[in-house]
Design a protein around this nucleic acid. Structure first.
Lengths: 168, 168
DNA sequence: ACGGTGGTGTAATACTATTACACTTCCCTG
DNA sequence: CAGGGAAGTGTAATAGTATTACACCACCGT
């Protein structure tokens, strides 16, 4: 558990989904840098989708994003999906498989890392936490099965600290 | 890793998704026992859905199951979803969140256990492997965040041993 | 000017999952 | 054994998620 703890320490600041909105501008900047590095344009649509997600604490479905962007002019879901594809490749947005929804992420992920998405079933917020133990477990299971691992999905449904203490 | 290995040993026989079809009858029997324990009927629809999944090595979508069951008489998706709900509660079927599909599982899962679903991106088969390390990692991440864990989803996309050795 | 890569806008469609309701079966209990 | 309730079925309709197709546009390099 020692390595685990150290890892958490190193990553402190992560997962505080309730903080105001952790610097939307910085997230935009990160996406812009990714685009520049690949010589791809960081278009207005991409910026608008990322901004909507970055302002929200909770994951949104593609259609919820579509609705929020449909003023002043109606936007089609397919446009949002295209932007989401880009933003996911950029690592700025993750898809929550269990809810078919998307949320912004404000920090880098490293290859080989396993990140746990903790989803509150009460308020819907997501906290991310990297876990070396989970990564080792995945690696071990794969090795034992002769399986060549690529992309892990680790989601944990439960109740966040805030909701547990605010019975409401 | 010692505990991990022991766990694997104890569970040997798991995850051999390629074996003929690991005793459809036994899976039916397990579902029947679950139904009996709850004094619920193990109906024909439930048996048909489970049989289709148990014969298949790969996950199927609800609509693929619907198609397979639509002879001699057309079946509606909602009937399949109802049977799937029951079978999931019985622990005989799992949902693969990353693919929105369902597959049969021929062994018991224990509370607190974390099971990795290894999904081959080439042939689509799923192998299951419980991992104590993953369970510990999830628990640790949750504890660190003050998060009360309920239901974990752990899926690992990659290439299975068979596909890796059969380049085709 | 030209061609190519990549994005946009629009429409249509495919795929996944749920709700609603009328009807039946079974059990159990009074 | 009539009545009532829990649980399932069959059917139709609808909600929600994601993709395909295509015509057009903007930028970049030549």
């Amino acid at each position: 558990m020692a390595g685990e703890k150290a890892h958490h320490e190193r990553c402190e600041g992560h997962g505080h989904a309730h903080s105001p909105h952790s610097d939307v501008a910085a997230m935009i900047e990160r996406a812009r840098a990714f685009a520049a590095a690949r010589k791809l344009p960081f278009t207005e649509m991409r910026a608008r989708v990322l901004t909507v997600l970055a302002r929200e604490q909770k994951p949104l479905t593609a259609y919820e994003i579509t609705d929020r962007l449909s003023l002043p002019k109606k936007v089609q879901a397919v446009q949002v999906y295209r932007a989401l594809d880009f933003l996911q490749e950029a690592g700025c947005v993750h898809r929550l498989a269990s809810k078919a929804s998307y949320f912004a992420c404000d920090h880098e992920h490293h290859p080989g890392e396993a990140v746990v998405f903790m989803v509150c079933s009460h308020c819907g917020t997501v906290q991310e936490a990297p876990s070396d133990l989970v990564a080792q477990g995945l690696h071990g299971a794969a090795e034992h099965a002769g399986f060549k691992p690529a992309h892990p999905i680790v989601e944990l449904e439960g109740e966040c600290a805030r909701c547990a203490s605010n019975p409401l």
